[in-house]
């Protein structure tokens, strides 16, 4: 699997100086610049994200890794302004996509970007699908919403997407409800719903954490192959260094709201510059690097 990635990886690997994360040769498709995210609670303000800067190049997979509470999910949700407001406040920084700052574009314009240019896959496929609506409809509604497709056309496209993400017997599954599907199938449906709008950027927030170990591998394989086929840029949020090793080109390590280290996966893993990264690597059993 990892070899598979390397064979088709078109990213030049910059060696050395991992902390500064030398700019990718291609223009970044998504650029997070000095992002600050606060959660204003009743008694205190939590600074969840403190000055995070990330660049996601066309067609690459950037993994953001860190323990829970490190601000990685808040960062990911900020891209589409999906943190619950209140209590969340975007306190500073920019998120640039196609020349626009996603933190300040009007809601309406953001609505056109969500699901169409930038799509998301969430952690828990059990709860992230609407339990009362057929899964096929939940895939198709993206196209009906963004492209104004007819019911039949959207259905055909959704069936195709379900087939592409490896849902067996899409015709039958289309009509089923989330509770009738296994966890792995549900996550495939989520991915189909994210993919069907042909996004340029896919944000996957811990896409395998809630799944069985055996299924985790399949879903990761799927994400990698889809990324390569469609040339999407993928922002992968995870706490699992094993996942990073298997899927990502570059990695950013987050700790207490800050990015402590960025660089090529191989560089970071072999020559971690930051102390926290080192401890993180040491705590991960038996990392198999390609």
């Amino acid at each position: 699997m990892t070899t598979d990635r390397q064979m088709t990886s078109d990213q030049p690997r910059t060696a050395g100086a991992p902390v500064t994360a030398g700019p990718p040769t291609t223009e970044p498709v998504l650029e997070i610049d000095g992002l600050n995210v606060d959660f204003r609670l009743d008694t205190t303000t939590v600074h969840a994200v403190r000055g995070v800067s990330l660049r996601l190049a066309q067609g690459e997979t950037l993994a953001v890794v860190g323990e829970s509470g490190s601000g990685k999910t808040a960062t990911a949700l900020s891209v589409l302004r999906l943190n619950p407001q209140p209590p969340c406040v975007y306190a500073g920084g920019r998120i640039l996509f196609e020349g626009r700052d996603l933190l300040t574009v009007p809601d309406k314009e953001l609505g056109r970007i969500r699901g169409s240019d930038i799509a998301m896959v969430f952690q828990d496929p059990m709860t992230s699908l609407d339990p009362l609506r057929r899964v096929g409809v939940q895939v198709a509604e993206v196209l009906r919403h963004h492209q104004g497709l007819s019911r039949a056309a959207a259905r055909a496209a959704a069936l195709e997407a379900l087939d592409e993400v490896g849902v067996p017997d899409p015709e039958r599954r289309f009509r089923q409800y989330p509770h009738e599907l296994s966890g792995g199938l549900r996550q495939r449906v989520m991915i189909a719903g994210a993919l069907v709008g042909r996004p340029r950027v896919l944000i996957a927030d811990e896409p395998t954490t809630a799944l069985d170990v055996t299924v985790q591998r399949q879903i990761l394989d799927l994400l990698v192959s889809l990324q390569q086929r469609h040339g999407m840029a993928v922002l992968l949020i995870t706490h699992d260094l094993g996942v990073v090793a298997e899927t990502a080109d570059r990695v950013a390590v987050m700790h207490q709201g800050r990015v402590v280290e960025t660089g090529d996966v191989l560089d970071v893993f072999e020559r971690p510059a930051d102390d926290y990264t080192r401890r993180l690597l040491a705590a991960t059993p038996r990392l198999e690097l390609a």
Binding site: R40, L41, D42, T43, P86, P87, V89
Partner: peptide, 21 residues
């Protein structure tokens, strides 16, 4: 309940919840 969150309008006494409208 949601109303209070964004409005720490008055200075809160130490150790007490901010008084919210």
């Amino acid at each position: 309940p949601a109303a209070p969150a964004a409005a720490p309008a008055r200075p809160a006494a130490r150790g007490r919840r901010p008084a919210v409208p």
